[in-house]
Amino acid sequence: ATNIVSKVKWYNSTKNFGFIEQDNGGKDVFVHKSAVDAAGLHSLEEGQDVIFDLEEKQGKAYAVNLRIK
């Protein structure tokens, strides 16, 4: 899926990962520091509106092509 609009559930800049809620009630989506860095960001804030693409690797959903709404 591409261009999903949602909100950051939480992000831990010390552990370099977090999760984004899915508005459709699906499972929370993992977001890694590499996606945050690629977006030119230093961190994410809880409740922040984001747009991302969903990529599945080894049966897990990852946020990629992250951008701020």
Rank of each mutant, 00 (worst) to 15 (best):
A1Y: 12
A1T: 13
A1M: 13
A1F: 12
T2I: 13
T2A: 10
T2H: 12
T2Q: 12
N3I: 06
N3A: 09
N3L: 06
I4R: 10
I4T: 06
I4C: 10
I4A: 06
V5T: 12
V5Q: 12
V5C: 13
V5L: 12
V5P: 09
S6N: 06
S6R: 07
S6H: 05
K7C: 06
K7L: 05
K7N: 04
K7Y: 06
K7D: 01
V8Y: 01
V8D: 00
K9Y: 03
K9S: 04
K9W: 02
K9M: 03
W10H: 03
W10A: 02
W10E: 00
W10S: 03
Y11F: 09
Y11K: 00
Y11I: 01
Y11M: 02
Y11E: 00
N12M: 08
N12P: 00
N12R: 09
N12T: 06
N12C: 11
S13H: 12
S13T: 12
T14G: 11
T14A: 13
T14M: 13
T14R: 14
T14D: 11
T14W: 12
K15V: 08
K15S: 07
K15I: 11
K15L: 15
K15H: 07
K15R: 12
K15T: 07
K15M: 14
N16M: 11
F17P: 00
F17A: 01
F17M: 05
F17E: 01
F17W: 08
G18D: 00
G18F: 04
G18W: 04
G18L: 03
G18N: 01
G18V: 02
G18P: 02
F19I: 04
F19L: 04
F19Y: 06
F19K: 02
F19Q: 02
F19C: 04
I20H: 01
I20C: 03
I20L: 15
I20K: 02
E21F: 15
Q22V: 12
Q22N: 14
Q22L: 13
Q22G: 15
Q22T: 13
Q22A: 15
Q22P: 14
Q22E: 07
D23Q: 15
N24A: 11
N24H: 12
G25I: 08
G25N: 10
G25R: 09
G25W: 09
G26T: 09
G26K: 12
G26L: 11
G26F: 10
K27S: 10
K27G: 10
K27L: 10
K27A: 11
D28F: 05
D28I: 05
D28G: 07
V29N: 02
V29K: 02
V29H: 08
V29L: 06
V29D: 00
F30P: 01
F30K: 02
F30M: 04
F30V: 02
V31R: 00
V31T: 02
V31G: 02
V31H: 02
V31K: 01
V31M: 04
V31L: 07
H32P: 04
H32E: 03
H32I: 03
H32G: 07
H32W: 04
H32L: 04
K33D: 02
K33I: 06
K33M: 06
K33C: 08
K33G: 09
K33H: 08
K33F: 09
K33R: 11
S34Q: 10
S34V: 09
S34K: 10
S34M: 11
S34A: 09
S34L: 11
A35P: 02
A35C: 05
A35Y: 06
A35L: 03
V36R: 01
V36P: 00
V36E: 01
V36N: 00
D37S: 13
D37I: 15
D37M: 15
D37W: 15
D37P: 02
D37H: 14
A38G: 07
A38Q: 10
A38N: 08
A38K: 11
A38W: 07
A38I: 09
A38F: 08
A39W: 04
A39P: 00
A39H: 03
A39S: 10
A39G: 06
A39F: 03
G40L: 06
G40F: 06
G40V: 04
G40I: 04
G40H: 08
L41G: 05
L41V: 09
L41A: 08
H42W: 12
H42P: 12
H42A: 13
S43W: 12
S43R: 12
S43G: 13
L44P: 01
L44I: 08
L44Y: 00
L44R: 02
L44F: 06
L44N: 01
E45W: 15
E45M: 13
E45N: 12
E45V: 14
E45I: 14
E46Q: 14
E46G: 13
E46T: 15
G47A: 06
G47P: 01
G47H: 07
G47I: 02
Q48S: 08
Q48I: 09
Q48D: 10
Q48R: 05
Q48L: 09
D49E: 15
D49A: 14
D49L: 15
V50K: 00
V50E: 01
V50F: 03
V50T: 02
V50C: 03
V50L: 10
V50R: 02
V50D: 01
V50P: 00
I51R: 05
I51A: 06
I51Y: 07
I51D: 04
I51M: 12
F52R: 01
F52L: 03
F52A: 01
F52Y: 12
F52K: 00
D53N: 06
D53W: 05
D53F: 04
D53E: 05
D53I: 04
D53R: 03
D53A: 03
D53S: 05
L54R: 08
L54V: 12
L54A: 03
L54S: 03
L54I: 15
L54N: 02
L54C: 07
L54Y: 07
L54E: 03
L54P: 00
E55Y: 14
E55H: 11
E55S: 09
E55P: 00
E56S: 11
E56Q: 12
E56R: 13
E56I: 15
E56M: 14
K57R: 13
K57L: 10
K57M: 10
K57P: 03
K57D: 09
K57S: 11
Q58W: 14
Q58V: 08
Q58K: 12
Q58C: 15
Q58T: 08
Q58Y: 14
G59W: 04
G59I: 01
G59A: 05
G59Y: 05
K60D: 05
K60C: 10
K60S: 07
K60G: 07
K60H: 09
K60R: 13
A61T: 14
A61W: 15
A61P: 07
A61L: 14
A61G: 08
A61Y: 15
A61M: 14
Y62F: 11
Y62W: 13
Y62A: 07
Y62K: 08
Y62D: 03
Y62S: 08
Y62G: 04
A63G: 05
A63Y: 03
A63M: 02
V64M: 07
N65E: 03
N65P: 00
N65L: 03
N65H: 08
L66S: 00
L66H: 00
L66Q: 00
L66F: 00
R67E: 04
R67C: 05
R67N: 04
R67H: 06
I68N: 06
I68E: 06
I68S: 08
I68F: 10
I68Y: 07
K69V: 14
K69H: 13
K69P: 14
K69T: 12
K69C: 13
K69I: 15
K69A: 13
